[in-house]
Simulated scan of single mutants.
Amino acid sequence: MKIAEQVTFGGSGWDRAATARADAAALRNRDDAVAIPFSHKKPLLDGAGRLHRLPARHDRLQEDLLWILLGQDGSTPTFAVDVSHWIPEEGEPEISPEFFDRSEQRFPFLPPNCGFADLRMVMTQLDRRDAELAATGKALIEWHESHGFCANCGARSTPADGGWQRVCPACKRRHFPRTDPVVIMLVTHGNDVLVGRSPGWPEGMYSLLAGFVEPGETIEAAVRRETIEEAGIEIGQVSYLASQPWPFPASLMVGCHAKALTREITLDPVELEDARWVSREEMMDVFAGTHPELLGARPGAIAHFILRNWLADRLD
């Protein structure tokens, strides 16, 4: 797919400066170093929908916070920093439990137009560079939060290598951020595409089928297994389309085009609440917002990207 990296969170040509990670502490103390704060895994945005950067030596950014060297913008070291300990004057920030967290947290010592916002809500507002940085920072902060202890001996581990490792002081084992590969399938049969909805999704929302790749499994095999397990549809040819880092919490979505050999749907009610074939013409109505029953995959998700390009006949 020639336009594969135009997907949200796709590559922006960012210099991750991997060879400089061992010197992250020194880079953080440079006068030109900047930091992108995250609170409860929400990035800080300004009023124009851009990531807001603070000087890394800002008096509110202590050395003992979780710092992650994202890379360099030209020669400028750029970090993500976890400031979830910040509590505004009105008390502990309220984090919405809903599918889309529309709450925004603001602090009096920041510019009045700046606030911490859920990445799901703002991902389509960000330019390609900011989207990549936000996805990387969120994914790594979440990994540190959930992997604080050594999986080998159980001792508490500590961040290392600019936040890209955790090291166990007891057994010296090194741990690296995890990424979970997930296949997401454009399953077609003639002029129709297979879509489904999971329990708990917003009413009327349908998207492409997806599932985790299992150990010892190829991408193609995972596409065939997941489709027949969830919807009872047998798959023939499978081809790669595009991929998307999906930091909710740590997936790499591998988009594929799968040609269906059968049409009869046998639903797995544990995985899917419903699944159906939708014609190209119906899907055009879904994207136009005029379909009487269906809502499409949300903008920013790779399912939306793939479906939009399928409608435009741009899967080459």
Score class of each variant (00 low, 15 high):
residue 124 T to W: 02
residue 142 E to D: 12
residue 147 H to C: 08
residue 142 E to R: 11
residue 86 W to R: 10
residue 166 R to Q: 14
residue 116 F to A: 05
residue 104 E to T: 12
residue 126 L to P: 01
residue 145 E to H: 11
residue 107 F to C: 07
residue 104 E to V: 14
residue 131 A to Y: 00
residue 111 P to F: 00
residue 150 C to N: 09
residue 158 T to N: 09
residue 126 L to C: 05
residue 159 P to I: 07
residue 118 D to F: 00
residue 166 R to P: 02
residue 170 A to I: 06
residue 124 T to R: 09
residue 166 R to T: 14
residue 134 A to Q: 01
residue 168 C to D: 03
residue 102 R to L: 13
residue 120 R to P: 05
residue 89 E to A: 15
residue 108 P to D: 15
residue 158 T to R: 14
residue 110 L to E: 05
residue 127 D to S: 06
residue 118 D to H: 03
residue 153 C to I: 05
residue 91 G to T: 10
residue 161 D to F: 10
residue 143 W to S: 11
residue 161 D to I: 09
residue 86 W to E: 11
residue 155 A to E: 07
residue 100 F to V: 08
residue 121 M to N: 11
residue 134 A to S: 12
residue 174 R to H: 15
residue 104 E to M: 12
residue 150 C to H: 05
residue 105 Q to F: 04
residue 151 A to N: 10
residue 138 K to Y: 00
residue 93 P to W: 02
residue 104 E to Y: 02
residue 144 H to L: 07
residue 137 G to S: 03
residue 143 W to F: 05
residue 116 F to M: 08
residue 124 T to A: 08
residue 85 H to W: 08
residue 143 W to L: 10
residue 114 C to G: 04
residue 165 Q to D: 11
residue 94 E to K: 12
residue 89 E to S: 13
residue 100 F to D: 08
residue 153 C to D: 09
residue 118 D to E: 08
residue 126 L to F: 02
residue 120 R to S: 10
residue 155 A to V: 04
residue 136 T to S: 12
residue 165 Q to C: 11
residue 165 Q to Y: 00
residue 102 R to H: 12
residue 99 F to G: 10
residue 133 L to G: 03
residue 108 P to Y: 10
residue 167 V to E: 07
residue 128 R to D: 13
residue 128 R to W: 00
residue 174 R to K: 15
residue 168 C to G: 08
residue 168 C to F: 01
residue 112 P to F: 02
residue 87 I to F: 02
residue 106 R to D: 05
residue 147 H to Y: 09
residue 143 W to R: 06
residue 166 R to E: 04
residue 119 L to S: 03
residue 161 D to Y: 09
residue 170 A to R: 09
residue 133 L to C: 08
residue 89 E to D: 14
residue 150 C to T: 04
residue 137 G to T: 04
residue 109 F to P: 02
residue 136 T to D: 06
residue 95 I to A: 10
residue 135 A to Q: 01
residue 115 G to K: 03
residue 104 E to R: 13
